[in-house]
């Protein structure tokens, strides 16, 4: 028993002089793994056109109903996306998102993927709804817009906080507005067209308490 104790003590003493492996976040950061499922990114084609065609499949695939898409017709002279339509609004309620990645799987154009960003906390609930401008890859210079944060495409959290709150009302948060737009029926955004074999997910159980 004594030998074991001495061995253990020697080991901990050696540990004492080894370099700590702690990463001093947020000063020190390491790149997220390639397949990290953090906050979503809306991608563009190489020519700058948005990949998203406003089909709302992501919204339908979402098990928690956290994605709100408002499609609009493309202007043929000045299209936003290569398809007929594009997403005029694209909002994700990150408080509700479970980062399952089904939206990325459902997307026919690979417009949405889950990205490396994970620092999603905020002091105001409204700001936890990511708008299209938050999610969309910058254009024309991705790298410059990405800035010093090695992990984050899209807007930085602090940049988001600096914007005047409430400039763009976030519909994925504002349920009353959503109900008004979708014809007075109490639904979760984007559950229209949901496959019939997944009825229960359209109305999450905690939904009423949320209000």
């Amino acid at each position: 028993m004594v030998i074991e104790i001495v061995k253990g003590m020697a080991f901990t003493l050696r540990q004492l002089f080894r370099k700590p492996i702690t990463l001093q976040w947020p000063e020190e950061q390491k790149p997220a793994p390639a397949r990290h499922r953090g906050r979503h990114i809306l991608h563009r084609y190489d020519n700058g056109l948005e990949r998203c065609i406003g089909c709302e499949l992501c919204s339908g695939a979402c098990p928690v109903g956290c994605i709100y898409v408002e499609p609009a017709e493309n202007d043929p002279a000045n299209p936003v996306s290569p398809g007929e339509r594009y997403a005029r609004r694209y909002e994700i309620n990150l408080m509700r998102c479970i980062f399952c990645g089904y939206c990325a799987e459902a997307c026919p154009t690979e417009a949405i993927t889950l990205g490396p960003r994970f620092e999603l906390a905020d002091y105001r609930r409204e700001r936890t709804v990511a708008t299209k401008e938050d999610l969309l890859e910058a254009w024309p210079n991705f790298a410059a817009a990405r800035g010093p944060n090695p992990r984050g495409a899209g807007a930085d959290q602090r940049g988001q906080a600096a914007r005047a709150p409430g400039v763009s009302p976030r519909l994925a948060w504002d349920e009353d507005e959503l109900i008004r737009r979708e014809g007075g029926e109490r639904t979760v955004p984007g559950n229209a067209g949901l496959a019939p074999h997944v009825p229960s997910v359209a109305e999450p159980r905690h939904h009423k308490r949320d209000r």
Binding site: T12, Q15, L16, R18, K19, P20, I21, T22, Q24
Partner: peptide, 10 residues
């Protein structure tokens, strides 16, 4: 501090 450094923390 001792605990941290023994566990390779800071």
């Amino acid at each position: 501090k001792v605990a941290a450094h023994i566990q390779l923390r800071i």
